[in-house]
C-alpha cells in the first residue's frame, strides 16, 4: 500500500482555453501525506483530479505511480481511493452498501466482502451505522463512511478533496486528529486538498502551497511557516505583520521606535514578523497603543496601533492590557526578517 507518485510537466487547460494548471512537476514519496494548500481557483483540485485520473493532463504531462506511467489509465483502473468534498455517498445504497461498493465492482465474493466491510466500519468506529440510509447520517458520520468506502478497496493512494471543509469547527478539529492518526497508522500515500492552512500544517508531512495554477513552494510545514520562499507563501500561511521603515546603523526605524535589524542592507525596507515573534516587554524599543484585544482562550490577540504604519498583531499568554493602553514591544532574535521576493 505504499506507492510513490510522480507528476512530470502536468498542466491542464480547460476546453474553453483557460489554463487551470501550469505544467507542474511534483513527487510524493511512498507513505507520505502531501497537503495541497491554496486559495480557491489556484489549481489544487485540478492537480488532485490529474493524480486521480478524473482529468487528463495536457499533452506532454505524465503521471507515474510507483515508476509506472498511468497517464492513459482512467480513474476506474488506477486503484485510487478518493474522498470527495461533499462525500458523494450513493443515496440508493445504505452505509454497508457504500463501503462495499468498490469490492462488489471488483467481484470480491460476498462472504469476504462482508468481512472487509465490517473491518472498515470497525476501523472508523461506525459499526452501528451499517444499515443506515446515507441521508440519515450526520456530517461527521458521512465523512467516516466516505473514508471507509475509499479505503475498503485497499487503494494505492488516498486522495482527499477538502475532506473536512463541510464540517463544523469543533467536529473538524476532532476529525483532523483522527485523520492524522489514520494516515500515520496506514502508511498510505495520501494527497489532500485544503484551503485551510491550519489543516495543511497539521496533517501534511509536506505542504505544497499553490497560487494561480502553479506550486509556489513545497516543503515541510516548518519550512513553509518559518522559511517562506515567496511573499505569497509568507502572507497566505499564518498571520504576517508587514513593517515599513528604514534601516540604518543596524536598526530598523519605525514610527513608534525601532527594532534590531542585523544583516539587512541600509535604506527603506519592508520587513516581516509573525505575531508570536513579538512580545510585550516594558523595556522594549517599540511603542504603540492597544487598539483592540481578542481573547482566544489560551492567549489574547492584540492589535497595536502607532508602532508601525500599519497596525501590528501581537499575541500574548499573559494578562492582556486593555484597549487604549500604551505598550512596548520587543522582538525575538532574527525578527523582523526581510521578505522573500514577490
Amino acid at each position: 500500500m505504499t506507492t510513490p507518485i510522480r507528476l512530470q510537466a502536468c498542466g491542464f487547460t480547460h476546453a474553453d482555453g483557460t489554463c487551470a494548471l501550469q505544467p507542474t512537476d511534483l513527487s510524493v514519496e511512498a507513505g507520505e501525506t502531501l497537503a495541497l494548500l491554496g486559495p480557491s481557483g489556484c489549481g489544487k483540485t485540478t492537480l488532485l483530479r490529474l493524480v486521480a485520473g478524473l482529468a487528463r493532463p495536457d499533452p506532454g504531462g505524465c503521471v507515474l505511480f510507483d515508476g509506472r506511467d498511468v497517464t492513459d489509465l482512467p480513474v476506474e483502473r488506477r486503484n485510487v481511493g478518493m474522498v470527495f468534498q461533499s462525500y458523494a455517498l450513493f443515496p440508493n445504497l445504505d452505509v454497508a452498501g457504500n463501503v462495499g461498493y468498490g469490492l462488489k465492482i471488483r467481484r470480491v465474493p460476498p462472504g469476504e466482502r462482508a468481512a472487509r466491510v465490517a473491518r472498515m466500519l470497525a476501523m472508523m468506529r461506525i459499526q452501528e451505522l451499517a444499515h443506515r440510509r446515507v441521508d440519515q447520517l450526520s456530517g461527521g458520520q458521512k465523512q467516516r463512511v466516505a473514508l471507509a468506502r475509499a479505503l475498503a478497496v485497499e487503494p494505492a493512494v488516498l486522495l482527499l478533496d477538502e475532506p473536512l471543509t463541510a464540517l463544523d469547527a469543533k467536529l473538524r478539529e476532532q476529525l483532523r486528529v483522527e485523520l492524522a492518526g489514520l494516515l500515520r497508522s496506514l502508511r498510505i500515500t495520501a494527497i489532500f486538498v485544503t484551503h485551510d492552512q491550519g489543516e495543511a500544517l497539521a496533517l501534511g508531512d509536506r505542504v505544497a502551497v499553490m497560487r494561480a495554477g502553479r506550486i509556489e513552494q513545497v516543503g515541510s510545514p516548518h519550512e513553509i511557516y518559518h522559511r517562506p520562499r515567496t511573499r505569497f507563501v509568507a502572507s497566505f500561511v499564518g498571520i504576517l505583520n508587514l513593517l515599513e521603515g528604514e534601516v540604518a546603523d543596524g536598526l530598523f526605524r519605525l514610527p513608534g521606535g525601532s527594532l534590531p535589524a542585523s544583516g539587512v542592507a541600509p535604506g527603506p525596507a519592508v520587513l516581516a514578523c509573525r505575531p508570536e515573534q513579538l512580545r510585550l516587554d516594558p523595556s522594549g524599543t517599540l511603542a504603540g497603543r492597544i487598539a483592540a484585544a481578542f481573547f482566544l482562550g489560551d492567549r489574547t490577540r492584540l492589535v497595536v496601533e502607532g508602532a508601525a504604519a500599519q497596525p501590528i498583531v501581537v499575541e500574548t499568554v499573559a494578562a492582556a492590557p486593555r484597549p487604549g493602553e500604551v505598550v512596548r514591544l520587543a522582538a525575538e532574535p532574527g525578527c523582523p526578517w526581510p521578505l522573500p521576493p514577490a
Binding site: 480513474v75 486503484n79 485510487v80 470527495f84 458523494a88 443515496p91 468498490g102 468506502r149 486522495l159
Partner: peptide, 10 residues
C-alpha cells in the same frame, strides 16, 4: 459527482 465516486471505486 456520484458517478465520479463510482469511477474512483473502479
Amino acid at each position: 459527482a456520484l458517478e465520479e465516486a463510482a469511477r474512483s471505486l473502479g
